[in-house]
């Protein structure tokens, strides 16, 4: 059954691609989060700069990082995801 799925169902090519997008998104998310938090946050507290009252590391890592991810997710949904039917079973199946 699985061999058939892999070879013939074109919907699974779409699904596999979208799973890869998910992994790429989470890697970008992590690098952004980690880079700003520990890049700026490892200075001593006296040298911190502040944006809107928050320490800069927190502002960029957590607040800006959140908005960046929302924008990336919207871009991915609008431009990269493909609508496929779930129920049209065995479509394009030729064994």
């Amino acid at each position: 059954m699985n061999k058939r799925d892999r070879k013939t169902d074109s919907r699974f090519i779409v699904a596999n691609r979208e799973a890869v997008i998910g992994v790429i998104l989470v890697i970008i998310n992590f690098i952004w989060w980690y880079g700003f938090a520990y890049g700026l946050g490892s200075n001593s507290v006296e040298n911190y700069s502040y944006i809107l009252g928050f320490p800069a590391w927190f502002f960029y890592s957590c607040i800006v990082g959140f908005f960046v991810m929302v924008i990336l997710v919207i871009i991915v949904v609008k431009f990269f995801l493909v609508e496929v039917p779930f129920d049209h079973d065995e479509e394009g199946m030729d064994e």
Partner: peptide, 14 residues
């Protein structure tokens, strides 16, 4: 934050 998109993209359509 990752859970918001990761779960649905990974399990996703497949």
């Amino acid at each position: 934050v990752a859970t918001g998109y990761f779960v649905l993209l990974i399990l996703g359509k497949k």
